[in-house]
């Protein structure tokens, strides 16, 4: 793990001591918790202009269903100059499900944020064009949320698209939750009849 990344993370934490939580390290990767998601844009702006994190690798989201706050938005950033990697994790509550957009910092955040909006239903304040990106406009659900069934739900939007739940029926495609080990839980170890 590069000492540069550690130094930059500490620098970022010092600049935003009220908005950032502790720095944690796991398998040579640094993660910073953003305790105040309202400041995410300022944190990212500082990380880009002052600390040289000029490349936003990815923005993704996590649904911790049953916990509060429910959602996490994860920002992976990288600097070409110093070649250090840093991860920011911001929490978003289910009630608001809103976080400021970082499209004004990195343009590439545009489609990442649209995907998160489409799949997880988190809105991005200040996004220039927050539309669905994979599902069609007018689809009523957010399919990557944990309370959305794997098979999908029936929808009907005349002239645009329809959808039906896929047949699962305990077939070879379904992973069994809570099975003792992956060997038994994974689809390939199951016969169609079981």
């Amino acid at each position: 793990m590069s000492t540069t990344a550690k130094r930059l993370a500490q620098k970022l934490k010092k600049a935003f001591s009220t908005a950032l939580g502790s720095v944690s390290e796991f398998r040579d990767e640094l993660t910073l918790i953003v305790t105040d998601p309202a400041q995410i844009k300022d944190v990212c702006q500082y990380a880009k202009t002052e600390l040289g994190f000029d490349y936003l690798v990815d923005v993704s989201s996590v649904d911790n269903y049953g916990e509060d706050p429910r959602f996490e938005v994860v920002y992976e950033m990288y600097g070409y100059e110093h070649q250090a990697h840093l991860r920011l994790v911001a929490t978003v509550s289910e009630e608001s499900a809103v976080i400021p957009s970082v499209t004004s910092v990195w343009k590439t955040a545009d489609w990442h944020e649209r995907e998160i909006y489409d799949m997880m239903g988190i809105s991005f304040e200040g996004h220039p064009d927050l539309r669905r990106i994979l599902m069609w406009e007018g689809y009523p659900y957010f399919p990557l949320r944990k309370d959305f069934p794997l098979a999908g739900k029936a929808t009907e939007l005349p002239e645009v698209a329809f959808s039906k739940p896929a047949p699962l029926e305990g077939g070879p495609f379904v992973t069994t939750a809570g099975s003792e080990d992956r060997q038994r839980g994974e689809p390939r170890s199951k016969s169609v009849s079981s």
Binding site: L134, M135, Y141, P143, F148, P149, L150, A151, G152, K153, S163, K164, P165, A166, P167, L168, G171, F173, V174
Partner: peptide, 12 residues
């Protein structure tokens, strides 16, 4: 048949 995609997004 939809193949390996038993999913909300793929027509079966």
């Amino acid at each position: 048949t939809g193949g390996m995609y038993r999913s909300y997004a793929v027509m079966q």
